[in-house]
Design a protein around this nucleic acid. Sequence first.
DNA 1: GACTTTCTGATAGTTATAGTATCAGATATA
DNA 2: TATATCTGATACTATAACTATCAGAAAGTC
Lengths: 214, 214
Amino acid sequence: MADADLKMAELSARSGVAVATIKFYQRENLLPAGVRTGPNQALYGDAHLGRIRLIRGLTEVGGLSVAAARRVLEAIDSELPLPETFEIAQHSVSEAVDPTTVTADALAHVDTLMAGWHVSDDNPGRLAAAQVFDTFTGIGQIDAAGWFRRYAAAALVAAEADIDELDARIERAAKAEIVVVGTVLGDTLFSGLRRAAQEHLSSLRYSAPPASEL
Amino acid sequence: MADADLKMAELSARSGVAVATIKFYQRENLLPAGVRTGPNQALYGDAHLGRIRLIRGLTEVGGLSVAAARRVLEAIDSELPLPETFEIAQHSVSEAVDPTTVTADALAHVDTLMAGWHVSDDNPGRLAAAQVFDTFTGIGQIDAAGWFRRYAAAALVAAEADIDELDARIERAAKAEIVVVGTVLGDTLFSGLRRAAQEHLSSLRYSAPPASEL
DNA sequence: GACTTTCTGATAGTTATAGTATCAGATATA
DNA sequence: TATATCTGATACTATAACTATCAGAAAGTC
């Protein structure tokens, strides 16, 4: 597919994003400038269209702020080693948790869930999970049915899928993009599928099955 | 534990939330007024402290907006049947997806993942998952290692844990709270644990294990 | 019992985010 | 030639989530 040579108005029409918003993304360094053909003319290609779609996916679907989207896009564009790209993506999907605000008890419980896992003490996910534990117990709830342990099992399944999907890519650019997209959109995908699964399981458990299934 | 009879300054100190912010939550109907002891005096109890902790958990840990937090708190306080409370919680954790913006292809793929599940066509999670699929394919990525299918399996594990945790409660108030907290904080918990699992698995796969483990 | 502190609800102001809108000049198109 | 469209720069807007100030009134302190 050859480059489409789009003008700004066409780029806007095809992406469904307003011209002023595209200019805003350029100002914010999320989107490179077009190919200049004069002091006030420029052309855009399929790469720009794809980038706009990625930006909207990260912000609208993934819930990233524009600032966070800029950080992960820079990580994709850079020639950083993959583990660094991974780390930037991980830090961008949620705010950093101040380690002093979580209790030692919560961290101990989370570490029990992750027994046998090789996870560094300052892994942001470990702290976030501990924060959930503190909130849970802080409002007087207890984990009566192994909720935390079973979420750890689910997380392991998803993380295996993430790593396998990464392994299926050969080029660095593709790997970097899947790291970012998988990290950011994985949370959205999971929460959507979990909501569907909740409806399924609660209808199974609390409703009488239709006669045809008896 | 008897009611603590806190004044505003003490409530603020114990919760770690500024007085002006607590007043803001009262204005916004997230937090009930205290027990009046005069035209410009009032006392607060443990219930207020717990409610503030719940508000902060929903907003800071769960990422809910104040408006969304108000909706789920109202659902907890109401005498609505549990399925309705569930639905309000589900709709509050993420923005509604316009069904006309997702492709039929994406919906078909998502429905394949959920084969055998009893899920209504307008389940918000089904639409959110389809939106992720569209974003994924829209930037030219393909699902090379069964990423979507494996996420569906993980979601089922988590949803089972959710339902079992709900079943472990007897009183309506406790059930309503766990429905909301589980729905809202479940996403945060999963994403944290997934990030930890990613570090674990990538260290397993890409680093030489220490000599002691050989 | 005077004096200082703290309380109340009401109102107004602040900061950050994510765009939108307008403009002046220059270029493309009919 | 006339109209439409482009460029970058600048200014404006809307919303969210607080945060600050204020005028009484009550509480605590000596």
